[in-house]
């Protein structure tokens, strides 16, 4: 039965070569540390899914934001879970991305030929932090409001354009409805678009160039300072 369906689609879509290229390729023998990247990816999917679900009830205005978040948390079935997953997922994403980066540094995996993968990874880390910062304001509770007040004020210390940056981030002198909507817009449109772009390149390179093999301790012994090329 499954074979038949498989064949039916194969004849119409021709996806088997793609599946073969993606899934049935060989990769070097890896350790458990190599699952950190895919775990980050899974949490990202979790963030996207739960984030989309949250927008179904969330309203980005100072009048409604808090009430709608409270409504999601306390009255919608599984609302606490969806919000909880999004909330804790944010922390998990930072932790996993951080560990993933440490793994990459330990393995020297940013070296040739994976420099671009490393750059996009750093971009992804920055985007993740920006997600955390913009998302923090959205529930419009005390913590959100005051932490963002302090957080945006940091921009003011930049020489010359500091005050302008502050007004740009807040959409005015003070934290207001304008700040909320622009953070919201950033959080659900601008940053996801950037994320998609970067993750696309990152994943493409992981498949195209392949993941790095765990370095062997023997490399130092084999190679003298003359760096002879092995036959």
């Amino acid at each position: 039965m499954i074979e038949k369906i498989d064949l039916w689609f194969e004849e119409r879509m021709g996806w088997r070569p793609i599946w073969k290229a993606l899934a049935l390729r060989n990769i070097p023998k890896v350790t458990w540390a190599y699952t950190l990247g895919s775990a980050t990816l899974l949490v990202m999917v979790n963030q996207i899914l739960t984030g989309i679900l949250l927008t179904i009830y969330y309203v980005p205005s100072p009048q409604d934001a808090y009430n709608s978040v409270s409504f999601i948390t306390n009255e919608i079935t599984a609302g606490w879970l969806i919000r909880g997953l999004h909330h804790w997922g944010a922390s998990a994403m930072v932790i996993l991305a951080g560990l993933h980066m440490i793994r990459v540094v330990v393995h020297g995996a940013y070296k040739f030929p994976r420099e671009v993968t490393w750059f996009t990874g750093l971009g992804l880390l920055a985007v993740t932090m920006a997600f955390g910062f913009t998302g923090y304001l959205l529930p419009w509770d005390q913590k959100a409001y005051w932490a963002t007040t302090v957080g945006t004020r940091m921009l003011e210390v930049v020489p010359v354009i500091g005050p302008w940056l502050l007004r740009f981030a807040r959409g005015g002198e003070e934290l207001s409805a304008v700040t909320l909507t622009r953070f919201y817009g950033m959080h659900i449109w601008v940053l996801p678009a950037l994320l998609m772009l970067l993750i696309g390149i990152h994943m493409f390179l992981v498949v195209r160039i392949g993941i790095s093999a765990p370095p062997k301790a023997s490399e130092t012994e084999e190679e003298g300072p003359e760096l002879e090329v092995e036959a």
């Binding site: 808090y66 948390t73 606490w80 005390q142 003070e174």
Partner: peptide, 10 residues
């Protein structure tokens, strides 16, 4: 849980 404090009070 999904923490939510008091409503923001500027």
């Amino acid at each position: 849980g999904a923490p939510l404090e008091e409503r923001a009070d500027p």
